[in-house]
């Protein structure tokens, strides 16, 4: 669909886009999207259309009159469709293989756990989501991925309290 064709389509630009305000920046009159994680975030927003997608870059066009239209190019950060599925597979294997273990070294050195750690920051929202459902020994991974340790000294060894320390950290860092 070309910008011209889109411009011919009736489309009302709303004054309040259904996009989280923090994802918008206004620079010299341009409205720029940033930090959206999935192209589906913008596909269904009526005031914009995707003109072209290529190699992770989408050209999006505000659906407003042609003479006032602007082409905006953004790099889309897409979550790999398989990341969540891979995380779940690794998590299940890890839990099953380490349930009888007491040593944190043995628990954290499991191959599946290491592969989750290898996902880096992308694993954080998945781990935190898991922790809201079922506390487990995610602390080693979280410390190494984030470089931080928000657990209170008096909570160490207490899984429910340590979990809540980390979930508080997650909320304050917008992971939850």
């Amino acid at each position: 669909m070309t910008p011209f064709v889109e411009a011919m389509c009736p489309s009302d630009v709303t004054s309040t886009p259904p996009i989280p305000h923090e994802k918008l920046k206004c620079t010299n009159g341009e409205i720029i999207y940033s930090d959206f994680k999935n192209v589906r975030d913008i596909q269904y927003i009526p005031e914009f259309v995707i003109v072209n997608r290529n190699n992770g870059v989408a050209t999006i066009h505000p659906a407003k009159p042609f003479l006032n239209s602007e082409l905006i190019e953004h790099e889309i950060i897409e979550e790999p469709e398989g990341l969540m599925e891979l995380f779940q597979e690794l998590k299940i294997t890890w839990k099953n293989d380490t349930a009888h273990l007491s040593s944190p070294f043995d628990i954290a050195m499991h191959e599946s756990y290491q592969r989750i750690m290898g996902m880096g920051e992308k694993a954080l929202p998945l781990i935190f989501e898991e922790m809201t459902k079922e506390p487990d020994y995610w602390f080693w991974a979280l410390r190494h991925i984030t470089g931080e340790n928000p657990t209170r000294i008096e909570h160490r060894g207490n899984m429910p309290l340590m979990t809540e320390d980390w979930l508080s950290w997650a909320r304050s860092h917008s992971y939850l």
Binding site: S102, P104, R143, R156, G157, M162
Partner: peptide, 25 residues
């Protein structure tokens, strides 16, 4: 999940014991 073998051996059923202080008692 609250306690492990070391804790149990020490008579504690409320904490996870291991000499790795960052996450354990």
């Amino acid at each position: 999940k609250k306690y492990n073998c070391i804790a149990w051996a020490a008579g504690d059923n409320a904490k996870w014991w291991w000499p790795l202080p960052e996450d354990n008692y």
